[in-house]
Design a protein around this nucleic acid. Structure first.
Lengths: 231, 231
DNA sequence: GCAATATTTCGGTTATCATCGAAGTATGAA
DNA sequence: TTCATACTTCGATGATAACCGAAATATTGC
C-alpha cells in the first residue's frame, strides 16, 4: 500500500547524525559555509560535501556561492518547521562532556529558533508579554492587542501584518527545551531583530546560542519587567 | 557542536521505508495489529516485529494487547504532526501501477489525517465553512464564531473547548496533496467524527482513504453548499 | 490436549552507506 | 605564475542494519 509521498527518503536524510547536526546548526536561520558545517558535525570536508549535495538535491537546503566559499541555508521555513516538529518528539540526548553540557545550558538558556528567540529567555519574555497583557493566547496563535501594538511600536518593532505574506503573524512555537510555547511567526522575528539591533542580545561564537548583554539585562527588566537571575 | 536532542535517532527510525509505511498507515488515527502493518509495509511478520519494537522503544507508538493480537497506534498527536510536517517537505513519489494511481487519487480526494478530514474534500469543506462565515482565519489557527457555534451545534457536533486538553482547538493543518490548509485540531476531529456518525463518509477497505456516501453528497450540499462533482 | 493463528527471538546473509585518503577543480592572494 | 584555501569527485574499506528462515512463545478454538 505504502501511500504516496516518500517521506522515508527525507526522513532518512535527516536521520544521519552528521546531516542532522548540520541541519540543526542551520536552524538559527543563518547561512553557513561548508567547512563550518563539517566542523559542526565533526566530519571531514569531503564527507560533508557529499552530505550537503544530498540535502541540496532533496530540496532541504539551498546554496549560495561567494567566491570560493559556498554558503548553505535551510531551503524554506517548512523545513525548519519539520525539524522543530521532530525535535519535540525526540528524547533528550545523554551528555558526554562538560563542554557539551555548557553548550547545552547556553542553548537552553537562550537561542535563536530559525529566526526568533527561544530557550528559557524566549519562553520567559513571551510569558511577560502575556502577563503585561500585550498579547493573548488564541489556540496555536497569539493575538497582539491594541495595547501591545502601541508598546511594541514604541519599542521600535515594526508591527505590520502584511496581507501578502502567507506567513503566520504570531505563531506559538513549542520549545523543545522548555516544553512550553514561545513567540514565533513574523512578530517573533521582528522583536528578535530589534533585540539584536539594540545589542540586548548577541550571537555566541558558534551555534545558535545567544547571550543577553548587560544592556539587555537592564533593558528587559525596565521595559518588560523580566528579571534575569544568574544560574 | 551537535546541539542536544537527538533528532537523528527519531528521524532515522522514520527514515526506513518499511517503518515509514507502517507509520503512514497509522496516520489515519486507528490502531492496527502487527500483521496488518507488516502487510502494509510489504515485509515479513518477523521483520515488522523488530521494527515495531524499535518504534515503541522510541516512544513513537503505543501498544495495546487484545488476546493474541497486539494493536499499535501513534503515541500522540505530536507524532502525527511531525509526520505531516515531513510529508510537506517530501517530494512526490513516482507512480508505478494503475492500482497505486487509483489509491493516490482516492487519498487526494478524501482521507483522514490522524483524526480529521483531509484531501480535496477536507480543504473544500474548510473553504465552505470560511465562505459561509462560520469560522475565520487567524494566523495558524481558525476561530469559530458565534454563528458557527450555533450551526455546528445544530449539526450535532459537540463544540466544547475543554480547558484541560492542551490540544489546539481548530488548527490549520497544511495538506500535503492540496498544499492548502484544512481544519484540524479538536474541532476538526469532532466534525469528522460526526460525519462518520451520520454515515456521510466511510472508510475504504484499507488505508486511510475515505469515501463520500450518497447521503454525504446530498448532505454536504444541503448543509454546507458543498457541491461534489464526479471526476 | 491438540492444532491453528499471531507475534517474537535468534542466527546468518547481504546490501547499503558513511567515512576518509588521494587526487582534481576553482578561486583568491602573492 | 605559483602557492594556498575551499570545496568536490573517486575509490576502497568497514560497520551497520534490514531482511528472512527456523524455531520459540502465547492465545484461541475444537
Amino acid at each position: 500500500m505504502n501511500s504516496n509521498p516518500n517521506l522515508a527518503e527525507v526522513a532518512s536524510l535527516i536521520g544521519n547524525p552528521s546531516r542532522a547536526a548540520m541541519l540543526v546548526s542551520l536552524l538559527g536561520g543563518k547561512a553557513l559555509p561548508a567547512g563550518d558545517l563539517a566542523r559542526a558535525a565533526g566530519i571531514s570536508p569531503q564527507t560533508a560535501s557529499t552530505h550537503l549535495a544530498k540535502l541540496i538535491h532533496a530540496g532541504l537546503l539551498i546554496q549560495e556561492s561567494y567566491g570560493r566559499h559556498k554558503y548553505f541555508r535551510l531551503a524554506n521555513s517548512e523545513v525548519g518547521h519539520a525539524l522543530e516538529a521532530l525535535q519535540t518528539i525526540s528524547p533528550p540526548k545523554p551528555i558526554r562532556s562538560l563542554r557539551e553540557s555548557n553548550q547545552l545550558h547556553a542553548l537552553q538558556f537562550a537561542r535563536t529558533c530559525y529566526d526568533h528567540l527561544a530557550g528559557k529567555i524566549g519562553v520567559a519574555l513571551t510569558d511577560r508579554l502575556l502577563e503585561m497583557n500585550f498579547i493573548e493566547k488564541s489556540g496555536k496563535e497569539f493575538l497582539l492587542n491594541a495595547k501591545g501594538k502601541i508598546k511594541l511600536h514604541e519599542f521600535g518593532v515594526t508591527v505590520e501584518k502584511s496581507p501578502k505574506s502567507r506567513r503566520c503573524f504570531a505563531r506559538q512555537c513549542l520549545d523543545w527545551s522548555e516544553r512550553r510555547y514561545h513567540l514565533a511567526g513574523s512578530l517573533g522575528a521582528s522583536l528578535t531583530r530589534r533585540l539584536f539591533e539594540l545589542k540586548w542580545i548577541e550571537n555566541l561564537p558558534d551555534g545558535r546560542a545567544v547571550r543577553v548583554t548587560d544592556a539587555g539585562i537592564k533593558g528587559l527588566s525596565d521595559e518588560f519587567g523580566l528579571h534575569l537571575t544568574i544560574e
